[in-house]
Amino acid sequence: MLGRAFEPAFLQRLDNLVLGIKRARTVRLGRRALGRVQGSGIELESFKDYSEGDDLRFLDWNSMARLDTLYTKSYRVERETEVSILIDASASMGLPVKDDKFGLARVIGAALAYVALGENDPVRLISFGGPRGQLAYRATEFFRRRESYGSFRPMLTEIRCAGATEMPFAVEQFLNQRRPPGVAIVISDFLVPSSVYKSAFSHLMAARYEIKAIQVLGSREASGSLGPGAYRLRDCETGDIREVTITPTVAEACRRRLDNLREELQVHCAGHGISYAAAVGAQNLEDFLVRELPRLGLVR
């Protein structure tokens, strides 16, 4: 499935999308530039009548010579928002196997990276989780141009889903790099106790990151992959065992439980200004990227 992320036709549909970043209304000196403010940019934004006190460096001398009127040029400010896309590579992303949640997560991550690169923002991919004994946190360098998009491919190809969902650990590693705050897109199934992602989100918000949470679920996630019958279920991350007899009642209870988990995450995101989107099943990938994400404002 990952191959789709590098298909020209697929990328062509993403060309027109722009990452929906909430711009700051004001810029404080000494702080990073966010928002359209007058500044020392190179892209002309508009003209306005000269007012006393305006910087004479922005006076349009050509207009004054031709029209004998003083106009001041305003430029779009130089801005650079770092986009970090964190992909959950824990074991739960590999299950159910047929759903290929991890493939879906990688494609979404790659697609969003491609979209972000369209704005020349620095973009990097980060994976967390992985086989025991290996690095649970892995990141690419920042890329700023779409021509560099192919540089994400080796990492996306190499990462494997295994181990536990170490989201707080990944966030801690991420913040330890002391980068200027930007956009953090967390792609995960979020099938962890809510305290786990709440803790991670709170750290990111404290560091003034704009968070976008994308929940990737399989269409067989709940009990869809298990027909009626008796099973011994093993949690792929904790190893806990539970013997369950799946009946329609139990299956319905499981679906209800999944809905509750999703709703809890959604409510938490809404309450903390975190953009949330859920991708259920790989078959709706393009709809999700082209229609669902713009609808939710994650992209425009």
Partner: peptide
């Protein structure tokens, strides 16, 4: 000796009202 099935998370089956244990 029912076959062991790995699932992404047992959180989904909490409402099955069956206790979890390593072995019984």
């Amino acid at each position: 000796s029912r076959s062991t099935v790995e699932v992404s998370s047992l959180l989904l089956f909490e409402e099955a009202q069956i206790s979890v244990s390593k072995a019984r």
